[in-house]
């Protein structure tokens, strides 16, 4: 499964980066291809390409604030959660994403 996503928190200094790291680690451990863009206090990092988004089976938005460029994901299956869900339960979130894709 191919997963893309965005992490963005209120201050943009803490949860954004922990969420990204935890989601990428959980996704890879479960055998998926995963790329998470961060939108934080240092700007956008690991910016998703059009190709990555097009190829993705599902999009995970772990965000406490409005993200930039949400329109890029129009027509895609999206799971949106607060960053704390990605931080505290990354494995469950990846399982949930896999379940959504399986049941499409």
């Amino acid at each position: 499964m191919k997963i893309v996503g965005v992490a963005a928190c209120t201050v943009g200094i803490a949860h954004t980066y922990i969420a990204q790291e935890k989601l990428e680690n959980a996704g890879k451990a479960a055998g998926h291809e995963i790329a998470i863009e961060t939108q934080g206090t240092i700007g956008t990092e690991n910016e998703l390409t059009k190709e990555q988004i097009t190829a993705a089976d599902i999009v995970i938005l772990a965000a406490d604030v409005k993200i930039a460029g949400r329109e890029r994901f129009e027509g895609k299956r999206i799971i949106q959660v607060p960053t704390e869900v990605a931080v505290k339960s990354p494995n469950k979130l990846i399982e949930k994403a896999a379940e959504v894709v399986r049941n499409k």
Binding site: I13, A14, T16, Y17, I18, Q20, E21, K22, N25, G40, T41, I42, V87
Partner: peptide, 11 residues
């Protein structure tokens, strides 16, 4: 960047 790198360690 130093702070965000430390944050990533906390994951």
């Amino acid at each position: 960047k130093e702070i965000t790198n430390f944050m990533r360690n906390l994951a």
